[in-house]
Simulated assay, not measured.
Amino acid sequence: MIDSIANMLAHVKNCSRTRKVLIYIPYSKFKFNLSLAFERYRFVKRVSLLRYSINRSEILIELAYNGYHNMIQDIVQVSKPGQRIYWNKKQLRVKRQIGIYFLSTSSGIKTNLDPTCVGGEVICNLV
């Protein structure tokens, strides 16, 4: 079984390190919402959806750079298919100073910095 989220995160990390500007990723609703969350916190400059036909779509991600430095230093996948990690509100307060954690909640993708987040499955950590 291929973990498509791990594939997406590795692709973004590798393209960020090689200083590519545009990334094309196969479309899924979850990956698109995760990319929009990256855009909301200014890790990527722009996210758009490219529809070629009814059955084929891609996500176009434009990476953001601050001068010569990448906005994405490292991405670590926390929750994996074999071991799902869930945090509650108490655990989120402890992890505030160690990067931004993206969580999948019942109300969409939130971060540990969001005051309305009450917990959920931890997807990844962006530094």
Rank of each mutant, 00 (worst) to 15 (best):
M1T: 10
M1E: 08
D3T: 00
I5R: 03
A6T: 07
A6P: 02
N14D: 07
T18W: 06
R19C: 07
V21S: 12
V21A: 09
L22V: 09
I23R: 01
I23F: 01
Y24S: 14
I25S: 05
P26A: 00
K29F: 08
L34Y: 04
L34Q: 02
A37R: 08
R40P: 01
Y41S: 12
Y41R: 09
V44N: 01
K45N: 13
K45H: 11
R46D: 13
R46G: 01
S48G: 09
Y52F: 15
N55A: 13
N55P: 07
E58D: 13
E58R: 11
L60Q: 12
I61S: 00
I61A: 04
A64C: 11
Y65K: 04
Y65M: 07
Y65L: 08
Y65C: 01
N66G: 08
H69F: 14
N70M: 14
M71R: 15
Q73L: 15
D74K: 14
K80N: 06
Q83M: 14
I85Y: 08
W87E: 07
W87G: 03
W87D: 03
N88K: 11
N88Y: 06
K89D: 04
K90N: 13
K90C: 10
L92Q: 07
L92G: 00
V94E: 11
R96F: 06
S106M: 09
S106C: 07
S107V: 13
G108C: 04
G108R: 00
T111P: 03
T111K: 02
D114W: 04
P115T: 06
T116W: 04
T116R: 10
V118H: 10
G119R: 03
G120W: 00
I123S: 01
C124P: 01
C124N: 01
N125A: 05
